[in-house]
């Protein structure tokens, strides 16, 4: 049978920064073809296609909570594979090699992590589960 794609709406303008990405305007409806764990989603809109940051998209038919994991306040130990400096107030800056706790894994590629008393969003692609090889 036909493949039914999920339709999402862009919540803000996104200007693409590489050839495999697709730019969107706020309010655009796009079909999501593939959701990468990285938080980049492969989308199509008419004859255009490319990767769009998931954080710029919201489901057209209400929140898509079924796919979203619950927070785990106990935390899951991860090691920072690559450092990142917070660019927004709710993000956290970490250095390579630090061990932190992941308390909420979100589909948009930004996880809530805890380090000592601080919590904030961090790019999931820069984290690795503690005790696992890359």
């Amino acid at each position: 049978g036909p493949i039914i794609l999920q339709t999402y709406r862009a919540i803000a303008d996104y200007e693409k920064s590489s050839s495999t990405e697709m730019g969107v305007k706020a309010g655009d409806a796009v079909d999501v073809v593939e959701k990468s764990e990285s938080g980049w989603w492969f989308c199509q809109q008419k004859n255009r296609r490319g990767w769009v940051p998931a954080a710029y998209l919201e489901p057209m038919d209400g929140p898509d909570e079924s796919e979203e994991q619950e927070p785990n306040y106990a935390g899951e130990l991860h090691v920072v594979r690559k450092g990142y400096t917070a660019a927004q107030e709710d993000e956290i800056s970490l250095k390579e090699g630090e061990t932190i706790e992941v308390i909420h894994k979100l589909l948009d590629g930004w996880w809530v992590v805890r380090k000592d008393e601080a919590t904030g969003y961090y790019p999931s692609m820069y984290l690795q589960k503690a005790g696992e090889e890359k």
Binding site: I11, T20, G39, E58, E89, D90
Partner: peptide, 22 residues
């Protein structure tokens, strides 16, 4: 064919456009 996703973290929209408050 779908190429691999970009290797940089996906950017986040500005706070005032965010769908869920932190």
């Amino acid at each position: 064919t779908i190429k691999h996703p970009p290797t940089n973290p996906p950017p986040r929209p500005p706070p005032d456009a965010r769908k869920k408050p932190p």
